[in-house]
Design a protein around this nucleic acid. Structure first.
Lengths: 224, 224
DNA sequence: CGCATGGTTCGATCCTCATCGAAGCATTCT
DNA sequence: AGAATGCTTCGATGAGGATCGAACCATGCG
């Protein structure tokens, strides 16, 4: 009987298994078509289409039409953050996994969260960036210092605040229980990591696997 | 058909309006009883009980039994964080608040919360009682000062701690996001307000409507 | 153009689950 | 002990919504 933001509406959108699978699939950051999502969710195409329009109505997805293809993607990093938070709770209370498989270990270490890096590597990186005063924690927000700006610029990592999207934002990690870096800077760093081939994205997974050499470089640049 | 943490299960728990209201009510951090939560959610006690056991099974709540009272609370800060994240998305996505009807405005102003007064009036009253040192905030608890005791006694408002029920307790308000006064003192004050006909309860609603004269008296006594 | 492919809409079916009254436990007060 | 209070369980009811096949649009290709 209370008012306020309709949290039940949003949560119930995520609360259907088919839709949850779709959203999970989109957490990789790449937009997918309705058929791909139908396959991913294990439902027929009409069913998937129905779910997708509900998610669109709910504002959780964006749609990019390209010819006869329609690519669905998560609406925002905020939505991604919410899903991460739900995953975290599900992970904490869920049926204790029998034994974490190798892919789980990789996911824990480094994975894609919408458009930026998450996992232990990402958490360690953010800690280090604070230590080196390249970033400044300001309550709930994160600010890029001038030292940080020139540092990243020197690395060839450029990021600017876009409409409604800050350069830096904290995003809670479900494996570690601490924050990692989101925002345009977080996205730019992930781009750099992939572009330089320090790591590659696992196929059909959110896991990010560093090459032996790439890990060394990454650690020297971000964790030193 | 990917596997992983059962996020749909968790999200669907939050996805029911009644449960969402309960969780929202618990976001204040104070544990509440099943009856209080039933009132907050606007459902019958059996229904509330059913929801609560589902939330317990899902691991979102903890239960502290104290005699015949059973206090439900959020299981962890992680759960609270998840709900905050969902609220964030809901606010970002649905700023289209419908025009609040007259009864909603009345509810916002003053309403019954279980057995005590809630709403803006109640929040203002509690603030004032602190200012006048009639009550003392002690961390999460509220204590009646000796000055307060004689003050309320002079007004003919008598309250004593009953079994397991404190004289004063903070209760989070959903319209304003701050605490109002619960406990036997809060109940006694509401009794006084009704007995003196300063206000009457709206039929079939939790709203409490002050008479013009009653409001003046109330403000002089509690808000001066 | 006609055909194939990717998506959506419609209609019917089915099933889960929210809801409440009544009855049943459990604990505490008198 | 008996009454009262707080809460849960049971049983019946009903509504919302997930699902899929078939039919229907839209775009691109030859």
């Amino acid at each position: 009987m209370r008012e306020g933001p309709d949290i039940a509406r949003i949560a119930s959108l995520v609360g259907d298994p088919a839709r949850a699978n779709m959203l999970n699939a989109l957490m990789g950051g790449t937009a997918l078509t309705a058929s791909e999502l139908a396959l991913e969710a294990g439902v027929s195409l009409p069913t998937a289409s129905s779910h997708l329009s509900k998610l669109m109505d709910g504002g959780l997805l964006t749609l990019a039409s390209q010819g006869r293809h329609r690519y669905y993607g998560l609406a925002s990093a905020q939505v991604a953050g919410m899903i991460e938070a739900i995953i975290g709770v599900a992970e904490a209370v869920g049926p204790k996994r029998v034994r974490p498989g190798p892919r789980d270990a990789a996911m824990r270490m480094a994975r894609v969260c919408y458009d930026h890096l998450a996992g232990e590597q990402a958490v360690a990186m953010l800690d280090r960036l604070f230590d080196r005063k390249l970033l400044l924690r300001e309550g709930n927000e994160i600010r890029l210092t001038s030292a940080g700006a020139s540092h990243f610029s020197a690395l060839g990592i450029e990021s600017q605040a876009k409409a409604r999207r800050p350069v830096c934002r904290a995003c809670l990690d479900w494996s570690v229980r601490r924050s990692h870096l989101a925002g345009t800077l977080g996205a730019a760093i992930l781009d750099k990591i992939i572009a330089e081939k320090w790591a590659r994205r696992e196929k059909d997974s959110r896991a990010v696997v560093f090459s032996p050499n790439g890990r060394q470089v990454f650690e020297r640049v971000f964790l030193s």
